[in-house]
Write a protein that binds this DNA or RNA. Sequence first.
DNA 1: ATACTAATTTTGACTAATCAAAATTGCAAT
DNA 2: ATTGCAATTTTGATTAGTCAAAATTAGTAT
Lengths: 218, 218
Amino acid sequence: MASSTVENYVKRIFLAQQTTADGLVPVGQLATIMNVVPGTATSMVKALSDSGLAEYAPRTGVRLTRGGEQLALHVLRRHRLLELFLVKALGLDWSEVHTEAEELEHAVSDRVLERIDDFLGHPSVDPHGDPIPSARGKMAEPSAVSLADCEVKKRLRVSRVADQQPAFLQLMERSGLIPGALVRVENRDEVAGAVVVVPGGDDPVVLGFSAARKVFVE
Amino acid sequence: MASSTVENYVKRIFLAQQTTADGLVPVGQLATIMNVVPGTATSMVKALSDSGLAEYAPRTGVRLTRGGEQLALHVLRRHRLLELFLVKALGLDWSEVHTEAEELEHAVSDRVLERIDDFLGHPSVDPHGDPIPSARGKMAEPSAVSLADCEVKKRLRVSRVADQQPAFLQLMERSGLIPGALVRVENRDEVAGAVVVVPGGDDPVVLGFSAARKVFVE
DNA sequence: ATACTAATTTTGACTAATCAAAATTGCAAT
DNA sequence: ATTGCAATTTTGATTAGTCAAAATTAGTAT
């Protein structure tokens, strides 16, 4: 049985891998993500390698094995189903469920998880629009087109908000930029690094590129 | 923040204390309950004493302080609300929720717990009839009259089944001896150590004293 | 080539929780 | 009083996960 520490490392490596071309995550980057000193990440990565969850090339980086990937997807499934459950069944705000799910994801059994999945009607995305892996470890590809690179003046649907900070999520909610909402990018100024977005019926909102890059559309 | 290990020790000491006159739990007994070797219990009890959760008299026993008791009641509240939630919201069987709650009780936040409490309508007992401590750490006294010592030939209501083993709980369910059910003790044979119980509309059931002592009535 | 820098790894130490096995103690029975 | 037993405590080791700080290394710039 993997400890919650191991589950967290594997989950973080998986997510970090998504943003790299070769799928190799530098150990220092992992240390930053995990909030530990570099030496700690090194020894943990060695342990993951010993237990067959990751491949470790010293001074190069770490990459999950098939087994490690399956574990990561399992943890991600628990996390995302729990987030949606906390919103749908208990009425928590989407800005606070991430933190709650971080703890619960290591404590919930498969039996309870499948009941939650039934309760929710086998959903495909969590409250932030992140895809929920199936019980067999398959996950859909989320949209890669953000408000920073989508077509301008076109009606689009928000599909995902890729930031878990409560303050950011609350701002997005106030601005009407939540998954499912219809939006149009009115104008994009590459020099100023800002986009003007018009959500559904609401007033226009100005987002910097760093924020716009976190809101994905379809 | 207390570790789940500390929470478990404190919870177990609290429950063991209930069954003693002086409230002193022998360290060896605690070791048995916690499934550790005696030496482990000794060092843990010293640590609990250092952190102010328990009073420890060497070679005599351990007793919770006010603070330890409050922590125990908090853990028990989490455990019992979770048990009921798993039954009411997710449809799990009452024979399996104890094990699930053992894990979740250490991962659920106060915020989520109070939502669960709201969802359930501020219940006073869990699926086994065990009282749920209030958020302020008050707990009702459960009935102390069991099928082994109640009045004979009288209509009574089952209020609590004090055993968490799935096999036992499943038997009680098949026999119609679940909290809320009406029953009558038809006959009690002190020599044979058996009681004949007639539940609601069902056929008579014969229980040994050891089982009868676990079913409480009002 | 050489030296510098930044990332990474190594080393040694620490805490929480545990076990195995030896030492101690309190009490009962003689 | 002395012995013996059973419970308890002590001691020494182990594992997982961590940090601090020193040592190493790869790559860059001279």
